[in-house]
């Protein structure tokens, strides 16, 4: 039995949509790596700092959260771009 491709009907608009979906997946997928690692580092350093000086725990936690919120913004940009690709394109 010879191996053949299946019948597919690919139009220009379909191709654009397919590319947009793949782009959305890659945008969010790769965009999540950086913030994930970065926020993890921030939290690791906060744990270290609290371990050294537990009395400043409240201040350090707040600083950690602010730092994480800032480093998460690139992840949110990826999310926005993905949603734009999914629903606007």
């Amino acid at each position: 039995m010879p191996v053949t491709g299946t019948e597919m009907l690919i139009t220009g608009a379909d191709l654009v949509k397919a590319a947009a979906f793949i782009g959305a997946g890659i945008s969010m997928g790769l965009g999540a790596i950086g913030p994930g690692v970065g926020e993890g580092m921030a939290a690791a350093k906060a744990c270290e700092a609290i371990g050294r000086n537990p009395r400043e725990a409240a201040l350090l936690t707040r600083t950690m959260l602010v730092g994480q919120a800032v480093s998460e913004s690139t992840g949110i940009y990826s999310l926005v771009i993905s949603l734009l690709l999914l629903f606007v394109v």
């Binding site: 919120a69 998460e72 913004s73 949110i76 940009y77 999310l79 926005v80």
Partner: peptide, 9 residues
């Protein structure tokens, strides 16, 4: 807008 999206996220 991005801050609002951040809050909703």
């Amino acid at each position: 807008p991005l801050n609002i999206i951040g809050e909703l996220a």
